[in-house]
């Protein structure tokens, strides 16, 4: 790890971490990243592992999507992340693609971002000199833009274990059901108190804006209310309003907005049902 960080700071800004390579290699083949030095992170043990620590789940940045799918801590404490991993690319890519690679690449359609936003995740950035924790929401700035500095690595990602009486879900609309880039995606996490009132609501959207984003206004209407059809419908409407999609090869802005509402509503209904019948 120390060597990798040294290499990066030495070559900065021409050094470039290489993890699974499922974004980088594709880009290199069309002639990008010419003249850069690739620093292969593939064998760094410090970037691997999924653990429970002081009320948090902590995963290494080099964790692959396949590992997410297999690990009981993810199944138990990160339902939306697990659901997202299940529809991520195809088995071959899942074996190589890493969580940090997905977040640092910062595609608007990065599928691991909405569930991690819904979980309220933070990312750990380390360089030779310092270590800092940044909330994922702040970390992602725009299309392929993040707060990471050329000499930094994303060492880990963490989130608080969801409380009791909480539930979450993720859904991805692709042009087919597997091996597709998201037309749009959404993740939700909700938690209720003993009286059934919502005490925590997070709604995150993917491929609907220059960066994956939280629909804060939609979340607000759920706060303190029982999770019922009317509130859910209103939250779904507000989430669709928060979306600022573009038209591209995978869908028009209009279609994306319309379907966002349907999907967010479906996810909230699913989550509220899961709360009622745990």
């Amino acid at each position: 790890m120390g060597e990798a960080l040294a290499q990066l700071s030495e070559h900065a800004p021409q050094g470039n971490p290489l993890a699974g390579g499922t974004n980088l290699v594709v880009e290199m083949r069309v002639g990008r990243h010419q003249g850069k030095s690739m620093v292969d992170l593939g064998r760094l043990k410090e970037l691997r592992g999924i653990q429970a620590q002081n009320g948090h789940i902590v995963i290494g940045g080099g964790t692959t999507v396949s590992e997410l799918l297999k690990h009981p801590l993810i199944a138990d404490h990160a339902v939306p992340l697990c659901q997202s991993a299940a529809v991520f690319a195809n088995p071959l890519i899942r074996n190589r693609a890493t969580v940090a690679g997905n977040l640092v690449d910062a595609s608007p359609a990065a599928d691991l971002a909405p569930p991690l936003l819904a979980l309220g995740a933070e990312v750990e950035l380390v360089s030779r000199e310092h270590t800092r924790w940044v909330s994922l929401d702040e970390f992602m700035v725009g299309v392929r833009k993040t707060l990471i500095q050329p000499d930094e690595l994303m060492r880990s990602i963490r989130w608080s274990k969801p409380p009791k009486r909480s539930a979450g879900a993720f859904y991805k609309v692709g042009l087919r059901k597997a091996d597709a880039i998201s037309v749009l995606s959404a993740a939700v996490m909700v938690a209720c108190d003993t009286s059934g009132r919502c005490k925590l609501a997070r709604i995150a959207l993917g491929a609907l804006a220059p960066r994956p984003l939280r629909a804060y206004e939609a979340e607000d209407v759920l706060q303190g209310q029982p999770l019922q059809a009317e509130g859910i419908a209103e939250a779904a409407r507000l989430a669709a309003e928060a979306a600022r999609p573009i038209s591209d090869i995978r869908g028009t802005a209009e279609y994306r907005k319309r379907v966002t509402e349907v999907i967010v509503r479906r996810l909230l209904v699913q989550a509220s049902e899961a709360l009622e019948h745990p």
């Binding site: 594709v26 069309v30 690319a89 042009l175 087919r176 059901k177 597997a178 091996d179 597709a180 880039i181 090869i249 995978r250």
Partner: peptide, 17 residues
């Protein structure tokens, strides 16, 4: 090609369809 030649956007259905 709008897919730039990437199969992931060529959308032949898979077993899940």
């Amino acid at each position: 090609l709008r897919s730039k030649g990437y199969l992931v956007d060529a959308k032949t259905p898979g077993i899940m369809e």
